[in-house]
C-alpha cells in the first residue's frame, strides 16, 4: 500500500449506538480505477455496518480473486479478512461460519469468481443456506486480466474491442431464486439509496442473503454497446426502493406508510418496500422470477429486494449446532477421556 489515510477525524462526526463513527468502518484507500463501481459498494457496506451498529471486529470479510475480491481491503479495516482463492470463497465462508456462529460474515465476489470458476461452490452455498451476506460486484467482464467477457455478460453486449458477446449471460439473481435462496436482491452500485438498506437487511437476515450488484467497469465495460455501463444501467433502471429499520429503532421513514409493504426479519428489524411496482410481493419466488424475466424482455434492469423468506432455517440450525461457537469449545466438551477409550478398546477384543 503506497497511500496512508490521514488519522485526523472530525471531533463532531456522528456516532452510532455503539459509539463508533463511520470512519471506524473505513478500510485502506482503494487501488481500483477511479470511478470503479466497486468502490461505491465498499462505501455502501461501510455505511450499512455503521448504521446497523455492528462492532467492526465482529465482522469477517471473505473474498475470492478478482477486482471485486480486492475490495475487502478498502472497508472495515478493524475486521479480519480472507482473500482466498479464485471461486472458492463460498467453501471458506462455510467452514468459517460453522466454526464461529457468532460473527457476521460478508462475502464479496465478482461475476467471474461466482458465475464461472466458482459456480459449483456458489450453488452449494445457497443450498446450505449459510448465514452470510454474499455480494457479487457484477460488471460482466474480467478486469484484472483486461476485459474478457465474463459469464454474466449479456448476449450481444459489445466488449471494449468491439466484439459482440456470443453467449447467453447467466443471471445470478434468477439462479439464486431457482436454487432456493432465502434472500435475493439486485441493485446498482450507483444507487446508494437502495443498496445501503438492502445490505443492512441482508446482514440482519438469518441465512444466505444474496445481492447481485451491477457495478460498471469504467476501464473495460463503460462504453457504448456494453450493457453493464453506467449509462446503459441508468437508462434501463427499474428500481424498487426500500428502507431498512433496525429492531427497536423508531420507525421513521420519508415515505408514507400507505405506499409501502413492511417485512419483519427474524431479529425484529423491518424492511419497507416501496411500491414502485404496484403489487410486488417479496414472498413469491415464482413472481420474482417472472418479474426478472419480464424486465429483461422489456430491456429493463429490475432492481430491488426480489425475494425474502424471513423464517429461513440456516446451516447452523440444520446442523443442530450448539449455541456456543465450536471454536470456543475446550477439552471438557471435546475430549471424552481415558475411561471411554478403554471401553472402546474392550469392544474391539
Amino acid at each position: 500500500m503506497s497511500y496512508a489515510k490521514p488519522n485526523f477525524r472530525h471531533p463532531r462526526l456522528p456516532k452510532n449506538a455503539l459509539g463508533y463513527t463511520v470512519s471506524d468502518y473505513d478500510g485502506a484507500i482503494s487501488t481500483l480505477c477511479a470511478g470503479c463501481g466497486h468502490d461505491s459498494i465498499s462505501a455502501a457496506i461501510r455505511n450499512a455496518c455503521f448504521l446497523s451498529s455492528i462492532q467492526p471486529h465482529r465482522i469477517a470479510k471473505l473474498s475470492g480473486i478478482g477486482c471485486s475480491s480486492k475490495t475487502p481491503t478498502y472497508f472495515l479495516g478493524k475486521s479480519h479478512g480472507f482473500n482466498s482463492v479464485h471461486g472458492r470463497m463460498p467453501s471458506v465462508a462455510t467452514g468459517a461460519s460453522v466454526a464461529n456462529r457468532d460473527l457476521t460474515y460478508i462475502g464479496i465476489s465478482g461475476d467471474g469468481d461466482t458465475a464461472s470458476i466458482g459456480m459449483g461452490q456458489f450453488v452449494h452455498l445457497i443450498r446450505r443456506n449459510v448465514n452470510m451476506t454474499y455480494i457479487v460486484a457484477n460488471n460482466g467482464c474480467y478486469g484484472l486480466t483486461k476485459g474478457q467477457d465474463s459469464a454474466t455478460a449479456d448476449l450481444g453486449s459489445l466488449s471494449k474491442y468491439g466484439a459482440a458477446n456470443q453467449f447467453e449471460g447467466i443471471d445470478l439473481a434468477s439462479l439464486a431464486l431457482l436454487q432456493g435462496a432465502s434472500f435475493v436482491g439486485r441493485s446498482f452500485s450507483g444507487d446508494k439509496e437502495q443498496l445501503e438498506p438492502m445490505i443492512r437487511a441482508a446482514i440482519a437476515h438469518k441465512g444466505f442473503a444474496f445481492i447481485d450488484v451491477v457495478s460498471p467497469c469504467v476501464t473495460f465495460a463503460n462504453h457504448v454497446g456494453s450493457t453493464k455501463s453506467y449509462s446503459a444501467t441508468r437508462t434501463q433502471l427499474d428500481a424498487m426502493p426500500l428502507d431498512f429499520v433496525p429492531m427497536r429503532e423508531e420507525i421513521r421513514t420519508q415515505f408514507d406508510a400507505g405506499t409501502s409493504q413492511a417485512v419483519t426479519l427474524h431479529d425484529g428489524s423491518v424492511i419497507h418496500l416501496h411500491k414502485a411496482r404496484d403489487d410486488y410481493r417479496t414472498d413469491d419466488r415464482m413472481a420474482a422470477l417472472a418479474s426478472l424475466q419480464e424486465s429483461k424482455e422489456n430491456a429493463k434492469f429490475l432492481t430491488g429486494l426480489l425475494y425474502l423468506d424471513p423464517n429461513s432455517q440456516d446451516l447452523n440450525q440444520t446442523l443442530n449446532l450448539a449455541s456456543r461457537p465450536l471454536n470456543d469449545l475446550g477439552k471438557v466438551e471435546l475430549c471424552p477421556g481415558s475411561r471411554v477409550l478403554n471401553s472402546i478398546n474392550e469392544g474391539l477384543r
Binding site: 467453501s91 471458506v92 467452514g95 466454526a99 452449494h124 471454536n327
Partner: peptide, 19 residues
C-alpha cells in the same frame, strides 16, 4: 462438500476461524 476443492476450503475457513 460438493467436491474435494470445497472440502479443503471448508477446513481452511474453519481453521482460520480457530476451530
Amino acid at each position: 462438500a460438493e467436491d474435494e476443492l470445497a472440502a479443503m476450503g471448508m477446513v481452511v475457513g474453519a481453521s482460520w476461524n480457530g476451530a
